[in-house]
Design a protein around this nucleic acid. Structure first.
Length: 226
DNA sequence: AAGTTTACCAACCGCATATAT
DNA sequence: TATATATGCGGTTGGTAAACT
């Protein structure tokens, strides 16, 4: 749609960051603070686009990042928040200090999703997978597809399902629609966590349909896998 | 030991939204 | 108010180490 690129791609590095680039970025942000990502690379002497710098800082270099394995509590929080918020990774990350949206997204896709599927729970709807069976055919098909996206690791999972397990679930074709569509809740109490997610003046209206069903109180996170 | 598959995670891309002009 | 630009977000991809055959 004719939007100009965020940066001059001809003169930017791509791929993994070097130690020196990291040092430059950290030094610059320490000296000048975050912000103005577009001009930062030039000012910091980096041949990177601003977007890339921002991502590198947020996902890797920020000093307050908590690295290492997710705890069981974090698992539970992620699952519960996802149940309410859907794929709003940034909102979920906001409830987990030291974790980034990218990290949580990766963790969801590589660990939690599988864990839920193993428990017979549709990771998108957070309903028992059998519930999809009674839904209209189209919806059921969509749900099945959504469990196995057609690229990346999920495709790998799907491949595995096809090759090793008897049941080949995936019809790896079209994209699923986004589960995150629909209005966001304003406030939630999830797993004992009070969420103030106000996007507008707080109201006391009921939250999302999922939350309204009381699924928040369901037994996620009780059994641990691993 | 070599080749193949799987799992993980950093980074990129494109779109949506916010902000400035 | 309309348009342009910057930033943020979510989906996706690619590289690589580990596990498996």
């Amino acid at each position: 749609m004719g939007r100009s690129p965020c940066c001059e791609k001809a003169h930017t590095n791509k791929g993994a960051w070097t130690k020196e680039e990291d040092q430059r970025l950290v030094a610059y942000i320490k000296a000048h603070g975050e912000g103005c990502w577009r001009s930062l690379p030039k000012a910091a002497g980096l041949l990177r686009c601003g977007k890339s710098c921002r991502l590198r800082w947020i996902n890797y270099l920020r000093p307050d990042l908590k690295r290492g394995n997710f705890t069981q509590e974090e698992d539970d929080v992620i699952i519960k928040l996802h149940q309410v918020l859907g794929n709003k990774w940034s909102l979920i990350a906001a409830q987990l200090p030291g974790r980034t949206d990218n990290e949580i997204k990766n963790y969801w896709n590589t660990h939690i999703k599988r864990k839920l599927i193993a428990r017979g729970i549709d990771p998108r709807t957070h309903q028992p997978a059998s519930a999809a069976a009674v839904a209209p055919a189209a919806a059921a098909a969509a749900a099945a597809q959504s469990s196995f996206r057609h690229h990346g690791d999920d495709e790998a999972v799907a491949r595995r399902s096809c090759s090793r397990d008897s049941g080949c679930i995936a019809a790896h074709s079209s994209d699923d629609d986004d589960s995150t569509s629909g209005s966001l809740p304003h406030q939630h109490a999830v797993g004992g966590i009070d969420l103030n997610l106000s996007l507008s003046p707080p109201t006391s209206q009921p939250s999302s349909p999922a939350a309204a069903k009381g699924v928040v109180a369901s037994g996620y996170g009780q059994g641990s896998e691993s």
